[in-house]
Design a binder for these strands. Structure first.
Length: 279
DNA sequence: CTAACTAAAGCACCCTTATG
DNA sequence: CATAAGGGTGCTTTAGTTAG
């Protein structure tokens, strides 16, 4: 279904011309890019008529001047309804905020919408498409900072003049499709986990994890949780960015704070256990 | 072989229901 | 109304299985 999605890259001065583009006056999401005095910024938006909404983004209203827009619409009617574009907008906002590469011009965090697991799966695949497209187009919205210490340590001794790369783009091959979404809900815990085709288990931004950890939690995971808090990846028991795990159990243990079998703990939208679904 | 992962047994606590 | 019985949940522990 997302195969019907269309992306447009529109410079501000060509906005008038873009009125004639197919499907531009339909529901969709968009990103506005620009530069402030010292920082690159982006605005994440959503509209039932993207063209109309874009033309409302004027400097006197916004207090900033964008110079390029990326628009994501669909050629299939009803593909992107209000709830879906809201979901995409919220998710994009969270992801961009987590990576901190761009200043976000949104005044408030967009609200989330509740959708069926199947729909979320589809939308997560659109998110992955958007990640890939923005990366190919050169917007480093979702790249991750490399650990500078590590790079330095690996450098040969005589390479003081070598430029140390600050950011490294995620290789495209790493951007795999989401296969399934699972949930883990219990007292004080409400987490979402995406399993991609790499077999990685990604606990998503906004997941609420347990407040306490117990003795049974392996030391490694206790440490992992501590460092995640230190790095600001966990704030008030909520994940502020996606965290990836190599097994369902590790992800589940991290989330609930005790030793638990991930294949049983994670359930899909129909209440089926992960172990059953991925058998 | 070792470490990590998973399954399963069992304990403790809490909530609900039955019974005197 | 009080207490006992029963069931469910959260958690720990142990042991078997798999991957590196």
């Amino acid at each position: 279904m997302y195969k019907s999605s269309i992306t447009y890259k529109i410079p501000k001065d060509k906005l008038g011309l873009s009125a004639e583009l197919d499907y531009i006056a339909t529901p969709g999401i968009y990103l506005l890019f620009g530069k402030d005095a010292r920082e690159k910024f982006v605005y994440v938006g959503e509209a039932e008529d993207v063209y109309k909404r874009l033309s409302q983004h004027t400097p006197d209203k916004d207090n900033y001047l964008w110079d390029e827009a990326l628009v994501f619409v669909s050629s299939k009617k009803g593909d992107l309804d209000k709830a879906r574009i809201k979901y995409l907008e919220n998710r994009l906002y969270d992801l961009i905020a987590a990576h901190k590469n761009y200043l976000l011009k949104n005044r408030n965090e967009p609200s989330n919408s509740v959708l069926s697991a199947a729909t979320e799966e589809t939308l997560e695949n659109i998110i992955l498409d958007i990640k890939q497209i923005t990366e190919v187009l050169g917007y480093k919205l979702f790249t991750t900072e490399n650990n500078p210490k590590r790079i330095k340590a690996n450098l040969p001794t005589n390479s003081s003049q070598t430029a140390i790369p600050k950011k490294v783009t995620e290789p495209l091959t790493k951007l795999k499709q989401a296969r399934y979404i699972f949930y883990l809900k219990e007292k004080g815990v409400n987490a979402k986990c995406i399993v991609d085709t790499n077999g990685d288990y990604i606990v998503t931004v906004g997941s609420v994890i347990s407040k306490e950890v117990t003795k049974s939690l392996p030391d490694k995971l206790k440490k992992m949780r501590k460092t995640a808090v230190k790095q600001g990846k966990i704030k008030a028991n909520r994940l502020t960015e996606d965290i990836s795990f190599k097994s369902a159990s590790t992800a589940a243990k991290f989330v609930v704070g005790y030793s638990i079998n991930g294949r049983k703990a994670w359930k899909d939208g129909n209440g089926r256990e992960l172990g059953e679904v991925l058998a």
